[in-house]
């Protein structure tokens, strides 16, 4: 199977108040296209930092990140933005919808950015699939947490990403809503054949993926391939 994400000797340190803080230490792994992977670990273990680096949101101190055969560390911030628009989808713990855009417009943005056609109908389809057909013109503040996360899911899948990064996708939701969102996430993922990387400390959610990478103190402490 083709590799969609390849991480080699990745380290990230921060300089602050006269001392150096190493958040990630010499991390290497590869992820096959179409697989589902979860990165788990306790708070402060560096999982969100790792996600940021994998998705090209930040630059590593050393090491390399290759996403869909594009070496991110050699790109400028604007070039990485285009990589994200082309290949990457995001789901955040706090949904990160644009507050001044309606649900429909939020989903339309990645498609509009790519200059695609029929943006409105495709976005509407996605929202209907997410069960939000009657909430298209609502603003995020008029939606519940679960609804907002479903809009976020629709937006993440809008540009048919090759890889989807989800940062604690159920972290801000109650159990019942979480289940619905997780089901939707995996359904859409299966349908689109997207690689899914979930950062979470929810072991139940992690168990639903085919591979679990455990991280602690900035290093990988376990990499479990599941059937």
């Amino acid at each position: 199977m083709d590799t969609i994400l390849s991480i080699q000797n990745l380290s990230k340190t921060y300089q602050g108040a006269g001392r150096t803080l190493t958040v990630l230490h010499d991390i290497s792994f590869s992820i096959a296209a179409g697989s589902t992977v979860s990165i788990v670990g306790p708070s402060g273990s560096g999982k969100t930092t790792l996600l940021g680096l994998c998705a090209g949101l930040d630059r590593a101190t050393s090491g390399s990140v290759e996403l869909n055969h594009v070496k991110l560390d050699q790109l400028s911030e604007d070039e990485r933005a285009q990589v994200r628009n082309k290949y990457v989808g995001f789901i955040f713990q706090n949904f990160q919808l644009l507050p001044t855009l309606t649900a429909l417009e939020n989903v339309m943005v990645p498609l509009e950015l790519r200059g695609e056609k029929n943006v409105k109908s495709r976005s509407r389809d996605l929202l209907e699939k997410a069960g939000l057909g009657d909430r298209l013109n609502h603003y995020p503040s008029q939606l519940s947490g679960g609804e907002q996360q479903r809009v976020s899911l629709a937006r993440a899948f809008a540009n048919n990403p090759k890889i989807l990064f989800a940062d604690e996708p159920t972290g801000n939701l109650d159990a019942e809503t979480s289940d619905k969102v997780v089901k939707l996430l995996f359904d859409l993922n299966q349908e689109a054949g997207t690689t899914l990387i979930i950062v979470t400390h929810n072991l139940e959610l992690a168990a639903m993926t085919s591979r679990i990478i455990r991280i602690k103190g900035g290093s990988i402490v376990g990499d479990e391939q599941r059937s």
Partner: peptide
């Protein structure tokens, strides 16, 4: 800032 950061995530470049 948070809206700009979201847009940047979605692929909007700095310009």
């Amino acid at each position: 800032i948070s809206s700009i950061a979201i847009l940047r995530c979605l692929g909007v470049n700095s310009t």
